[in-house]
């Protein structure tokens, strides 16, 4: 279900914990699985459960508790904008409005061509660089303004 590369990465994570604590690698394993497949289907979570020797329900619990896991399909590029107070003070609402207008979606929605999903995020721990957003969880774009948002969307569209 997962590529040999992904499994090797998961094995590297498992090795960080005591031998009888494979479950500790579940957060990394789900992250690695998500990077490969885009989202976590039940079948994919069942596979991770089996791989780590966990009950499937225990994996679903983790996947639904932490909000960076996609338990439903998302667009090719998931854009998560922080709107918490420090970002808001620096104009996060205008950035969010700009994105909504350009993409024609509200928070929680995916564009019809399945290229973009826009979500509202909570504090990312980088408030000094506000306003900011994450692309597919791992790429942070900081000090946003209108030009930067436009350039980012152009770049992602062509990817």
């Amino acid at each position: 279900m997962l590529s040999a590369e992904s499994l090797a990465l998961i094995d590297k994570e498992i090795a960080k914990y005591p031998a009888e604590q494979r479950q500790s690698a579940v957060m990394s394993a789900l992250r690695i699985a998500q990077v490969e497949k885009g989202w976590l289907s039940n079948e994919l979570m069942d596979f991770v459960a089996h791989y780590l020797g966990m009950q499937p329900i225990a994996v679903y619990e983790v996947a639904t508790f932490y909000n960076m896991y996609n338990t439903k399909p998302v667009g090719k590029h998931k854009i998560c904008v922080c709107t918490n107070l420090p970002c808001k003070l620096m104009g996060a609402d205008e950035i969010a409005d700009r994105l909504k207008k350009k993409l024609g979606v509200e928070f929680g929605e995916t564009t019809e061509d399945k290229q973009f999903t826009l979500v509202e995020g909570e504090c990312m721990g980088a408030c000094g660089d506000a306003p900011l957003l994450l692309v597919n969880n791992h790429r942070m774009e900081s000090f946003l303004n209108e030009e930067k948002v436009n350039a980012l969307l152009e770049e992602l569209k062509n990817k």
Partner: peptide
Amino acid sequence: LYNHHGYGAYICGEETALLESIEGKKG
């Protein structure tokens, strides 16, 4: 020494929630 990452849950900054999270559970 090993690094472990969270994945979007403020509560894991609470120390016992953080331990639960390292153990591979809900925080």
